[in-house]
């Protein structure tokens, strides 16, 4: 899929909370198996942070880079599965914070970990059809897990935002995009429940691997490209092994993928995961590079995109905030502080 008019990313930005908990600390509390420290961490939102505040900061960083009048945005669309309000859009608050209201479409998207890339496809359509000059999309989450659940080792927090606009203004121009979606119940949360459930072993091969392989294979066929044509490839990253394995299966060299697997530093940021990886790839890419972005969302589906980086990226990056700065800004917390920050301990 691609619009008739050239469309691309004209600005992007990310955000990661500064607190980190070591997976070994989660292990100490729930399993006591003596897991080695310093191997993997996840980002923990502070007591005054949530999906909305993460999305706002990512959106501001993207606006700084794009350097456009916020009133020219015709859409502000964020995807998340951890909405602070069950009813009341997060995107209206984000749009207000960047000054894009009232003449903009604002809505929240939901598809487990991939609503942000769905919103990206819609934004591409909106700009490509000339309904809008600019449209913002993004994904952000403060992922929750049942205390003691295997998910608790990796449920992180973070997000990223992308502004789509005309090809000639872009830092990366879209070549094509595909979606591969099936009705698969591998991971879910029922209405009113605090924590999600996962389909145990059902989550790997028939879910993550099958859908990403299918979307990426279709994309490469559509544009007549092979894995060797991409400088970098970014995959959804529920853990650090899955993206490397699916990349190997598809024929991508490990060194083209690994720098954008942030799971060991920030955990699985759900709707933010693939998008933060894509932002990090844009942070280090050179003009002419091709980048593959492939998301995955349970339920289940994968969106794949091919972008080509333009000369504009050199100047645009000077106005942005590299993801690396947020990766370096860390303060470690123990399980007790983590429990407090996540609202599991209630003060008077």
């Amino acid at each position: 899929m691609k619009p008739t008019r050239a469309v691309g990313v004209i600005g992007y930005g990310g955000y990661i909370p500064r607190y980190r908990i070591d997976a070994a600390e989660v292990d100490r509390v729930w399993r006591g198996s003596g897991r080695k420290e310093g191997q993997s961490f996840k980002a923990v939102p502070g007591p005054d942070e949530d999906t909305t505040t993460i999305a706002i900061q990512a959106a501001r960083n993207a606006m700084d880079m794009a350097s456009i009048d916020p009133n020219e945005l015709r859409a502000v669309w964020f995807g998340t599965e951890s909405k602070p309000y069950a009813v009341k859009p997060t995107s209206t608050i984000v749009a207000d914070a960047i000054g894009a209201l009232p003449h903009a479409n604002a809505a929240d998207w939901e598809f487990a970990c991939k609503p942000g890339t769905e919103a990206m496809q819609a934004a591409i359509g909106m700009v490509g059809s000339e309904m809008a000059r600019y449209a913002m999309c993004g994904g952000a989450d403060t992922a929750q897990a049942k205390p003691g659940d295997v998910l608790e080792y990796t449920t992180g927090a973070g997000g990223a935002a992308f502004i789509l606009g005309p090809g000639q203004e872009s830092v990366a121009v879209l070549q094509a995009s595909t979606s591969y979606v099936t009705n698969t119940t591998d991971f879910f949360r029922r209405e009113g429940q605090e924590y999600p459930n996962h389909g145990q072993r059902f989550t790997g091969e028939p879910a993550y691997f099958h859908h990403i392989r299918s979307s990426v294979t279709q994309l490469m066929e559509d544009i007549g490209a092979g894995p060797g044509d991409f400088t970098f490839a970014v995959f959804h990253q529920p853990n650090s092994q899955f993206p490397l394995r699916v990349a190997a299966e598809l024929g991508f060299a490990r060194d083209r993928v690994e720098p954008f697997v942030l799971t060991n530093m920030v955990g699985n940021t759900y709707s933010g995961a693939a998008m933060l990886g894509f932002a990090k790839a844009l942070d280090i890419a050179s003009p002419g590079d091709r980048i593959l972005l492939a998301s995955y969302g349970s339920g289940a589906g994968s969106d794949a995109f091919s972008y080509e980086v333009t000369d504009n990226i050199i100047e645009a990056r000077k106005r942005g905030v590299p993801i690396e700065r947020y990766l370096r800004r860390t303060k470690s917390v123990d399980y007790a502080m983590y429990a407090r920050y996540r609202g599991k301990l209630r003060p008077n």
């Binding site: 502070g46 005054d48 949530d50 909305t52 505040t53 706002i56 900061q57 309000y85 608050i93 914070a97």
Partner: peptide, 17 residues
């Protein structure tokens, strides 16, 4: 300046950012 949750009015009230 950053935008944060300043106060949430209980579990069922509005959140002030």
């Amino acid at each position: 300046m950053v935008t944060r949750r300043i106060i949430a009015h209980g579990d069922d009230g509005p959140i002030i950012y």
